[in-house]
Structure formats: structure tokens, C-alpha cells
């Protein structure tokens, strides 16, 4: 047992050192831990928060960022009715075609269409953003060390002025949590950046929380089903294994 414990410690330390290595670059601040309703064994999303987060994304982020793996039909999953989702889709145009004359044409988006990207391709996106590519956001909480905590920290981690002695490159903004602390994105959120209709306080922190929750859902839309199924499956496997253990002991008891 003693040795097993020791081994556990060694492996734990190994895991920790591996995880931290990625943060080590630069003097970037450590990402503070946040509580999220979707964390933990019973984690689930708050539909109201997701819808507010969607509003933040739609009114702010989507000007520069794509969300290519989310279709309008997926909005039903965050609590919109099919008609509401259709109405949202109807606000957008997507390219379709070619038509009978061989031309591409724009038409009103349908539920089956994916969220339209603000730029035609990466090169256009870079060109329009001073060389920096705004990443697609559909997987962003999975694609960044720190996940949702990092996104929240980034949204709230801007300073108007860089600290004294820090040389900022042209057009860059200071952010405590961005690797290297210089980020091309201008602080996207601020108090009352978006007007909520449900009476939720319109603070920077609230906007950041909401949009982070929305992006967490966008990255892991299967999360609720995964955790619910997982609980049932694990309890089942645990009981079955316990029964098998008892049978195993009884069968082997015949040998002695």
C-alpha cells in the first residue's frame, strides 16, 4: 500500500508538471478558477445564461469571429423555440447555388444553415484585422489551456494602459492573461455593451460570464447528455463489478 501511495504521488506530480508547462511562457498571469454551472458530475447549462451569451456573441463577437460548427437549428438546444430560431436565421443571408444560370446567389438563411462567417476566408479575415486572425469560436473553450476560465479571464483581463516599462507593439492591447500580454483584439466587452431584456445586470463581468457559458456550450453541446448518461452508466458498472467480485470470491473459496 505504501508503495502504491508513493507511486500515486509521483504520477500526480508528473501530471501537474505536465499541465503547468504550457503556462510557463512569458510573465502571463495565472488564470483564476471560476465556478461554472456546467462543471462537475451534475453539471448542466443555464438556458437563460446561454441565451444572453448568445446575444453577446451575436451583437459583439460575431462581427469578427466565425462560429462555423453551430447551425441555426442548434439554437433550439439553448432554449429558443423553432420559430424563434427561424426568425434569427431569417436575419442572415447565406450564399447558395449555383443556380440554373451557374451563378452563386444569396438567400435568406434557414435552420439547416450554419452560422455565417464574417469573412469569406482566413486571408480576408487577417487583412481586415491588421494581420491577426480572429479564431473560430465554436471550439474555443476546448482549444485553449484553462478552457472557460481562460476565456472569462481574457474578457475581463484588459487594461487601458500597459504597465510602465512595457513596450507595446503598434495596434496591440494589454491583457493580463493573453500569452505575451499583447493581444490584437480590442477589449470587446464593457459595462452595458449589450442590452439585456431579462433584467440581468449589464456589467462587464456578467457579459463575460454569459458569453463564456455560451461558448462552452458551443464547444461541448453534448455535455449535458454526456454527464447524465455517464452517471447512470458508472453506477451500473459499479454495481455489476461489485456483484462480479462477490461471485469471484465465492467461486474461488471452493479452492481452499
Amino acid at each position: 500500500m505504501r508503495r502504491a501511495l508513493l507511486a500515486g504521488l509521483v504520477i500526480g506530480a508528473l501530471a501537474l508538471s505536465g499541465g503547468q508547462a504550457a503556462h510557463a511562457a512569458g510573465e502571463t498571469a495565472d488564470v483564476p478558477d471560476q465556478d461554472w454551472q456546467h462543471e462537475g458530475v451534475f453539471g448542466s447549462f443555464d438556458r437563460g445564461e446561454l441565451q444572453r451569451g448568445f446575444q453577446v456573441f451575436q451583437e459583439v463577437c460575431s462581427a469578427c469571429h466565425s462560429l462555423q460548427y453551430i447551425a441555426f437549428r442548434n439554437l433550439v438546444e439553448i432554449g429558443f423555440t423553432a420559430d424563434e430560431a427561424k426568425a434569427i436565421a431569417a436575419e442572415y443571408e447565406v450564399e447558395d447555388g449555383p443556380d440554373d444560370e451557374g451563378e452563386m446567389f444569396d438567400r435568406t438563411a434557414r435552420l439547416s444553415d450554419y452560422w455565417p462567417s464574417p469573412f469569406a476566408n482566413d486571408n480576408e479575415a487577417r487583412y481586415a484585422n491588421g494581420g491577426a486572425l480572429p479564431p473560430d469560436l465554436s471550439l474555443i473553450t476546448k482549444a485553449r489551456e484553462g478552457g472557460a476560465d481562460y476565456i472569462y479571464a481574457l474578457m475581463t483581463g484588459y487594461e487601458e494602459e500597459a504597465p510602465e516599462g512595457m513596450e507595446m507593439a503598434d495596434g496591440m492591447n494589454f491583457n493580463h492573461f493573453f500569452p505575451g500580454q499583447q493581444i490584437a483584439m480590442v477589449a470587446p466587452l464593457y459595462d452595458e455593451a449589450v442590452e439585456y431584456v431579462d433584467g440581468t445586470p449589464m456589467t462587464l463581468e456578467q457579459h463575460a460570464r454569459d458569453v463564456t457559458a455560451f461558448l462552452s456550450w458551443a464547444a461541448e453541446p453534448e455535455l449535458e447528455e454526456r454527464k447524465e448518461t455517464g452517471l447512470k452508466v458508472l453506477i451500473f458498472v459499479f454495481v455489476l463489478t461489485a456483484v462480479l467480485f462477490v461471485i469471484y470470491r465465492r467461486v474461488w473459496a471452493r479452492l481452499h
Binding site: F236, V239, L240, V243, I247, R250
Partner: peptide, 15 residues
């Protein structure tokens, strides 16, 4: 044990 084996068998089938 009969019951246990039966239970394990049934659970195995479910699994």
C-alpha cells in the same frame, strides 16, 4: 449465489 449469478447474468445482458 444462484441469485447473484442470475443478477450478474441479467446485468451483463443489459450491458
Amino acid at each position: 449465489r444462484d441469485f447473484l449469478v442470475l443478477a450478474a447474468g441479467a446485468m451483463g445482458g443489459m450491458a
